[in-house]
Amino acid sequence: MADPILDIQNLTLRYPNAPTPAVCGVSFTLGQERLGIVGESGSGKSTVGRAIMRLLPDATMQADRMSFAGVDLLNASEKQMLKLRGARMSMILQDPKYSLNPIQRCGDQVAEAYRTHVSTTKSDAKAKAIAMLEAVQIRDPERVYDLYPHEVSGGMGQRIMIAMMLLTDPELVIADEPTSALDVTVRLQVLSILDDLVKQRGIGLIMISHDLNLVRNFCDRVLIMYAGRIVETLDAKDLDHARHPYTRGLLAAQPRIGGPRRPLPVLDRDPSWLSEATL
């Protein structure tokens, strides 16, 4: 792969006073593609995302290499990071309720986030924000611009977040469980809106999710994490042919519509998964 957006080699991260590292020897590169990270809760998915954004100042972080579009993330100053975050790399979190300021109009938050990184007039920022709300398929963007977060539904809130995160034209977007709080009927809409924008703009996307169906349908490649390690990397289309017993166990444990009604296979955790060389 020529010039990856992100190149991470042998990342290990330990929270203060934690007995074991939360992330252990993780390596991957990301190009203009959609990379899924799946695994059970606590496997270290969000920690990887936050480490890339350098949002874990108290944790001890080591890596052989950690670079983003030529910037050395291990040694970048906080000042450099402030310029990157929200501009060239953005993060979309699970619940827009906690990401949006409850006492500011939604549209103003989008416009203001843009003005933090791009020097322009208020009216230009507002016009850009409205155009972006339209790009995330909000039908009446002028009206929605003036609404407060509590006045919009979860799905609408998440589209507003996507608009805010994509308006600065980032090269990297990390979406951490972006639709886990949404009803299934709106989940697909939000995912396909994000998917279209990511493809159109050539953004590198890291999609963090516990949900195998989501990464199967909305990613090109998938990393499977277990206890802080990557145990397997697969093309999303080959997910059902996973080789690692952990991945296979997760797939088998999931009930499927029209599936047989026998007891679901439960995961049999093998201690050797913790000592295998990571792939």
Binding site: E40, S41, H210, L212, A253, Q254, P263, L267
Partner: peptide
């Protein structure tokens, strides 16, 4: 719950 744990609980409820 994670799908792996969900499977155990659903099996338990069926039984």
């Amino acid at each position: 719950l994670d799908v792996s744990v969900q499977a155990e609980i659903l099996n338990l409820l069926v039984r």
